[in-house]
Design a protein around this nucleic acid. Structure first.
Lengths: 191, 191
DNA sequence: ATTTTCGGAGTGAACATTCACTCCGAAAAA
DNA sequence: TTTTTCGGAGTGAATGTTCACTCCGAAAAT
């Protein structure tokens, strides 16, 4: 097995186990077994479990935002861009439930808080796309004039909640329901 | 110290430690120490850690919903009732950050999923207040005709996100901002 | 042959839970 | 009233388990 394959297998195994059972019920031994790798091998690729967890997050995060960038049409109306982005994001979560569950775990942990703090100040990553979008909306008086953080909450809060409910089987999100949800998010932030 | 005081001290200590550090970084020994109680004593009041965690959740949950019931005016308009409930809920979270953090932890854990599953089918508790409100809104065609679960996501998603951001210090929610947020939630669900 | 990479038994720390014991107020005996 | 006995709440050291991480002989690559 090529060495980069091993790294990939470890990440995949970690994603599966952590998404299903949480950080604390995904022991290194179990990750190693699922990756068909010795426990010690993991430490050849990742300094420790924290690093593994963080790098896996980075990988997923990058994958999502570069994916969203594709098919993004900067020259359509603000509303269209918002709807497109949000729909794509929601679809991604539905199609990749493991990724979603992992990201949620990460966010609801000390790591996640630190990440958001850094992000809010500096920036980086692709969430900027949304920030620019919303700031433009505020400037053009299309979007409510409230702090960016609150706009994020209004836009993402329902999206995440609805994705979670779908993945847990509390509701089945078909295309129509996805569209209605995204529209409702827009209703929440638009003036 | 009266015996019921001890139980209370244990719950208080557990709330503080778990809210701050999470379930897994709040060892029984630490809870015992903060409660000024021997480790073994905890097991006189609670069968095990899981039971302690669950009973603490129940206690907080009941406290919140009975609190919300006060000052609830069943004869005002649908919108007024929604705004009143949501505002009160958001205020409660802001005023009781430990409770909020604890409830979030609980929700984002296997316990929480089981709880919601039971809740969605059967019912019970005070969240029913919201369910009735929203169902009435749908019936009267004031609220969007989409599944209840999605309406909950639209109403609570932003509320929780915003409360989290406030507690983590990413935004300061004053009265005006609270009102605007709740209004935006209403905009999201109303037809 | 030499260097690099693997693997998984081994290690010590941390944890939830238990249990043999203490302690004290209240009841019973004196 | 004074002394003795009793019950059960309270305790924390001891226990067994689980975990992240290490380390060194074996295997693969060069």
């Amino acid at each position: 097995m090529a060495t980069s394959e091993k790294r990939h297998e470890i990440l995949r195994a970690a994603l599966e186990l952590i998404a299903e059972h949480g950080f604390h019920d995904a022991p290194i031994a179990a990750i190693a077994e699922r990756a068909s790798v010795g426990a010690g091998t993991i430490y050849r690729y990742f300094e420790n479990k924290d690093v593994l967890i963080t790098e896996l997050f980075q990988e997923l995060h990058d994958r999502i935002w570069t994916g969203l960038l594709k098919g993004y049409e900067p020259d359509t109306s603000l509303r269209e861009r918002f709807v497109h982005l949000s729909t794509a994001l929601l679809r991604y979560f539905i199609d990749n439930p493991l990724d979603f569950r992992y990201l949620e775990q990460y966010h609801n942990s000390p790591y996640g808080v630190a990440f958001r703090r850094d992000r809010l100040l500096g920036s980086g990553g692709g969430g900027d796309l949304y920030r620019i979008l919303l700031e433009e909306g505020v400037a053009q008086q299309i979007v409510k004039d409230i702090p960016l953080v609150v706009l994020f909450a209004l836009a993402f809060g329902p999206l995440l909640a609805v994705a979670r409910d779908h993945i847990l089987g509390f509701v089945v999100l078909d295309e129509s329901l996805i569209a209605q949800t995204v529209q409702a998010c827009w209703d929440g932030i638009k003036r």
